[in-house]
Design a protein around this nucleic acid. Structure first.
Lengths: 217, 217
DNA sequence: ATTAAATTTTAGGCAAATCTAAAAAAATTA
DNA sequence: TAATTTTTTTAGATTTGCCTAAAATTTAAT
């Protein structure tokens, strides 16, 4: 499989997990910052290889084969991210672009040895699940912090927005995966939250709270 | 720089270190298992980018810029090999093909952090020197084991032939980097050597001895 | 010094992945 | 439902990297 084919597969996979239904040509084009006509070309090629179900004008979905391939790419991407953060001491806002390259390295043995070396992690530095060697994914129940009500407690398990800007903000506030968050109060006017984090009280906007995933405890 | 350009640069670099003089189109084609006409095409492109000095029918050499680029690719290749062997527990005959892919990952920060993580090694698992971040190479004086005479001692510092077959043979004989080798005797008929290795005596052919680099002690 | 052989380059083509512009189909709206 | 808008596909070019076959150049041999 070429890099380009892998990138299309990954994009279709991500779009499917967001909306479940068939994926449109335009949605793919937009996410990949390419033209719809280029997408059509590639979809034909992927259909030829039995990686997607494609019918003209009808949108596209992954076949089982395609889904497994996509999961393996996601697996590689997220394992490399763990490597970069845990072993090479990158911060979580820096790793995406490098992992984007590393995810295309072809060697099953490599990725499985890397998995062991990292201690078989189940989540990447952003809290997203890492598929195992068979494509199995363990999903921890997660909620947006903004959905919790007063006096509920959560542990930060992931982010919705993964942009460097947001991640840097979190670093500044010392919010990271595993942080324990208590909802002290919710301002009904703007939905901002007063929370207790690492023993310290602070206020965060609804925009922040709706991009933080927590596990309710 | 594309993968293909990087591969050409690396090939020219390796051919230059072997023979010093200008590199011929055919030599490149042979090493890369491609056609001479393809090489010509690429040489024009590299010359355009000021990475090689190229005159029709006159062979090619690297510019300073080209040489530095090539060294950085070699640096990446060899650091990744160290990672694979030291951290992921690959054996030295398995790492070449994977490193061949990893060497094209683009991120200076990544490679320098990897370098630190590995403890700034100066040699790869085959004993070949690793250029530093500035392209500087520390060359240890090395000789072929076959060039030593009776009663001289050496420490294995590298291999000339890096084929999996040869490397597996060495593993079987328990010869690795750092092994101390004493020349007990040399058979004038076939130039085979009787050596002492890790306290144990064994006989090796001239073919083996002329593919093992040692540091004389 | 010619001729023959080997090397290298040019010319023309092909496949992958992209693009623009135009045509076709589907969805939306009046 | 008919017209309009949006989405999607097709048609035709372009670029990169490769190929084959033929021409040009250099090297070697007689």
């Amino acid at each position: 499989m070429t890099f380009s084919e892998e990138n299309y597969l990954k994009t279709i996979y991500h779009l499917t997990t967001i909306s479940e239904s068939g994926v449109s040509t335009n949605a793919i084009a937009e996410m990949m910052e390419t033209k719809a006509s280029s997408v059509t070309d590639m979809l034909k090629k992927l259909a030829e290889k039995d990686l997607v179900n494609y019918k003209k004008y009808q949108g596209v979905s992954l076949t089982e084969k395609g889904k497994l391939n996509a999961k393996m790419i996601v697996r590689k991407h997220r394992l490399w991210e763990v490597f970069l953060v845990d072993k090479l001491d990158f911060s979580w806002d820096e790793v995406h672009d490098i992992a984007e390259q590393l995810e295309h390295i072809k060697s099953e043995k490599l990725i499985n040895k890397l998995d062991d070396f990292l201690g078989n992690p189940t989540e990447d530095p952003h809290g997203d699940p890492i598929p195992d060697a068979n494509g199995q994914i363990i999903n921890t129940e997660k909620h947006l912090l903004s959905e919790l009500s007063e006096n509920q407690n959560g542990i930060c398990v992931g982010v919705k927005d993964t942009s460097p800007e947001f991640l840097k903000y979190l670093d500044k506030q010392e919010i990271s995966l595993g942080s324990k968050i208590e909802i002290m109060g919710k301002e009904s006017f703007d939905l901002s939250l007063k929370i207790k984090l690492n023993g310290r009280e602070l206020t965060i906007s609804n925009k922040i709270a709706s991009n933080l995933f927590v596990k309710v405890v």
